[in-house]
């Protein structure tokens, strides 16, 4: 038997991949297929799934009621999720780029420490980090207290911001949570750029700004693209940030799905929303990978 195994490389490979396949099959493929099947089902009076084939759940998502009317409620939720995901991604890029650039241009021996400092907040807990933002953003919170104190010193009167709970608070929370996921890949691609390219650009007469536009930025695009996927995918599907910082008023696709499974007890509709979310994400991701290609940067991050 050992002899057979020794000679059969295919069998060796298959045996090594077998547990992974079992796991991916049982906890990824079958669940996704089941979700897909469930998404065509309905809801019984006691909240159980009725398996059947009906497009009702999907029609409901895009606003068509069974009675033939139009209700944009879910389209608004989808639109809000997309807007918030794009806003978050853009803000994160704008903040991550200068910091990644700063680290990449720091003396080599300090780079690891500076990068490490970006990672430390990630190692605190996701939920706890959002909770910290409640303390900062609430009306009597840290932010308003500090500003109020400063304005008071100047003799003025300060009307506190009412940031929590609100969609802005959700945006701030999302940017905070996912900023490190953008900094890492951008840094990785900036760090890889050969220094002689800058010298060549300078030698050819480009000034600092033109060097940035024509050399640095294009060469760091793979990092930006990888970071965009690492940020966009979790942001579009999250429900805790909006749940905690939006005070249950900012409903996103993630919240919609979660509620179907917990409060509303309509798993079939929740499954349809989930499949819809997955397709939406895959389309964006595929567009990106086709357009720019990525993989290496994600691995590096």
């Amino acid at each position: 038997m050992i002899q057979t195994l020794r000679e059969n490389k295919k069998l060796q490979g298959l045996l090594l991949i077998l547990p992974t396949l079992l796991w991916m099959f049982g906890l990824l493929i079958i669940p996704l297929i089941l979700t897909f099947v469930t998404s065509f089902g309905g809801r019984s009076a006691d909240g159980n799934v009725i398996y059947r084939f009906s497009l009702n759940n999907y029609l409901r998502l895009i606003g068509l009621t069974p009675e033939g009317g139009f209700d944009p409620l879910y389209l608004q939720i989808i639109w809000r999720s997309l807007t918030l995901a794009f806003q978050t991604t853009i803000l994160v890029i704008l903040m991550a780029y200068p910091l990644a650039y700063f680290i990449a241009r720091a003396p080599a021996k300090r780079r690891n420490t500076l990068l490490f400092l970006v990672l430390v907040p990630l190692w605190t807990n996701f939920v706890i980090r959002i909770y910290a933002w409640i303390m900062i953003l609430r009306t009597q919170g840290v932010l308003n207290s500090v500003i109020g104190w400063l304005v008071g010193l100047a003799g003025g009167h300060f009307q506190p911001f009412e940031l929590y709970p609100s969609q802005s608070a959700v945006l701030i929370g999302m940017v905070y949570e996912f900023l490190p996921f953008m900094i890492l890949p951008i840094y990785t691609s900036l760090e890889k750029i050969d220094n002689s390219l800058f010298e060549a650009a300078a030698d050819l007469g480009a000034n600092a700004l033109r060097t940035f536009w024509r050399v640095t930025l294009p060469l760091s695009m793979p990092g930006v693209v990888a970071g965009t996927i690492l940020v966009f995918v979790p942001v579009i599907g999250t429900f805790i940030v909006s749940d905690i910082l939006g005070g249950r008023q900012v409903i996103l696709v993630g919240n919609l799905i979660q509620r179907q499974f917990l409060d509303a007890r309509d798993p079939a509709f929740g499954s349809a929303a989930s499949i819809f979310l997955m397709l939406m994400t895959l389309i964006v991701t595929l567009y990106y990978t086709r357009r720019f290609g990525f993989g290496e940067e994600i691995a590096a991050a």
């Binding site: 990824l28 669940p31 979700t35 469930t38 995918v233 979790p234 599907g237 993630g254 499949i275 979310l277």
Partner: peptide, 13 residues
């Protein structure tokens, strides 16, 4: 490349 919630509810189902 898929949101965690998709995998999460899949496993739940």
């Amino acid at each position: 490349v898929i949101p965690e919630i998709v995998m999460g509810i899949g496993i739940l189902v």
